[in-house]
Nucleic acid binder design. Sequence first.
DNA 1: ACGGCCGTCGCATGATCGTGTGACTAGACG
DNA 2: CGTCTAGTCACACGATCATGCGACGGCCGT
Lengths: 224, 224
Amino acid sequence: MNDSKTRDRKTSVWLVEDNAMFSMGVRRAVDSLGGMQCAGCYPTAEAAFAALDQETPPDVILLDVQLPGIDGITALQTFRKRVPEARVIILTVFDDADKIFRAVCAGAAGYVLKSSGIDRIGDAIRQVMDGGAPMTPEVAKKVLDAFSRIEPTLDRDSMEDYHLTERERDILRLMADGLLKKEIAQALDISVHTVSTHMRRVYGKLHVTTNTGAVAKALREGII
Amino acid sequence: MNDSKTRDRKTSVWLVEDNAMFSMGVRRAVDSLGGMQCAGCYPTAEAAFAALDQETPPDVILLDVQLPGIDGITALQTFRKRVPEARVIILTVFDDADKIFRAVCAGAAGYVLKSSGIDRIGDAIRQVMDGGAPMTPEVAKKVLDAFSRIEPTLDRDSMEDYHLTERERDILRLMADGLLKKEIAQALDISVHTVSTHMRRVYGKLHVTTNTGAVAKALREGII
DNA sequence: ACGGCCGTCGCATGATCGTGTGACTAGACG
DNA sequence: CGTCTAGTCACACGATCATGCGACGGCCGT
């Protein structure tokens, strides 16, 4: 979609952090780096929300999870709804597994420990703008562990679906993610024509004639 | 407990990969690095399983997910059952979110894209042996995306919806019924242009850019 | 009375999609 | 050995969609 590498505008960063001392340090660090700029600095989530109505939304939000007033996770959820295109990086001193779990569930784009040092924050910002998800290896490990723990209900088959092949379900899934055929083709490294062929067959099996119909049916019937 | 840095034995690595060309490249890369050794190289999961009965199990398994015969994910599950102590690193060209999701759910220790280059594989092996979870930033992003998708609703009650107008929801509903814009216009006895306008605004509020994306989001979030 | 939101309509352009048609490969099954 | 299925790719045509732009009347709140 967007080629962040060739962007001509500076990455706009908001900082939501109650500790004034730390806040100032981060702000200066961000501003001193090329390609990014701290466009807003708020001590509470409430203040940041209010600013959303006034200012132009940022590209990246650095969010401290332990804030006075609105909880950090809650704030994250609100940010995700009001500015989904903004990438939120959690900034905290805790590497508590449960906090990480809830943060990523809420749609955090990255999870950076304050103890990692201020200089790491710049890296994290660049990474999220390049589509990556900055995480320390320890955090990544905790994420995967949590993943394999919640696995229980993935093999709920038994119900006869519409005899879709695995490949057809793949394409359908990506369709339901809002991707264009072209993008699906790129994601699966196949030709757009092939994607079309698969979708054509899906239409037949699902007895629909439009992409929206197929996605809706798939979602409602739990095919994907 | 065990200090992997001062281990006196080389890390034993198995490679399960059908592409002989790539396979050989990885093998040489691994062997050329210090502290690890490619102890086995199998073109299929079946072959690797058979070897499990004969050879001593490896510390790390590099597993291509797109294998002839047994599916990569299935193979991963089997490995996890038969040699739980072995750390499995998924090696693939796909960065399909669903595949990644199922892989990590099945207990993958890491997920490395082939496109990242062979040299990254050595890093990944060291990382898993140090208890980390190697992931390319792109993969990490997809993992987080999948995460935030499986637990979408923690609020369900208090949270506001996307401020969709009643009319906009009408159009969205009909979209989710698989109707074309033209048909929606007829059904509501308005102009196609009006339908377009509504959908355009829905896109903005839902932060999507395709009809399928809008329908999927609406369905998943219970907007309609 | 004025601004803001909602619903409506229009147009134009380029991208995307649906569909008919055809074809090749690899593996599975008998 | 044929036959079938799944997956792949290609081309072409018309239909449909996304999007930027502009516009108008109605209703509501202050």
